[in-house]
């Protein structure tokens, strides 16, 4: 018999990951493997890296519209997995890119939005790295 599995609760910080949502994904795994959730989580890692690269490029181009839609895109998948902080960060990017404040009110100052975008992207990357580390650690136990 395999050693008792560490439960996600033991490893994952609920401020980083919404456990209800994440557990929904784990529940879809077959009893003896973690193939499904692994493919989802590691698929997300890839997607996040790609998206960050695109964001960097768009930021260089000062392409706010693209930044907004990239933010929206990653918001969807991070929300699906339950990565609360990343999801929130992506929402900020989505708003700033649309020339809005966090509350959705208009912010016509494009330079200010760019400045905020730069900051938000670096924050979201940091949050992402943090959660990637713990998730990788969580999956390491199954190797």
């Amino acid at each position: 018999m395999a050693p008792a599995e560490a439960q996600p609760d033991d490893i994952l910080d609920s401020s980083l990951v919404d456990l209800n949502t994440f557990n929904q994904i784990l529940e879809m795994d077959e009893p003896d493997d973690h193939e499904f959730s692994t493919s989802i989580v590691f698929g997300f890692f890839e997607q996040a890296q790609e998206t960050f690269d695109s964001m960097d490029a768009a930021l260089k181009e000062k392409d706010l519209e693209t930044l907004s839609s990239l933010g929206h895109f990653l918001k969807g998948s991070s929300a699906t997995i339950g990565l609360t902080k990343v999801r929130d960060g992506c929402e900020h990017i989505q708003r700033y890119g649309k020339l809005e404040n966090i509350d959705g009110s208009p912010e016509p100052d494009e330079d200010l939005c760019l400045e905020r975008l730069t900051e938000a992207i670096s924050t979201v990357k940091k949050d992402y790295e943090e959660v990637e580390t713990v998730l990788r650690k969580y999956y390491e136990q199954f190797d």
Binding site: G43, Q47, S77, T80
Partner: peptide, 16 residues
Amino acid sequence: EDNIINQKVLVGMLHG
């Protein structure tokens, strides 16, 4: 659904 992660999760749930 355009996001592949979301596609997979939704399909996974529906399979379930």
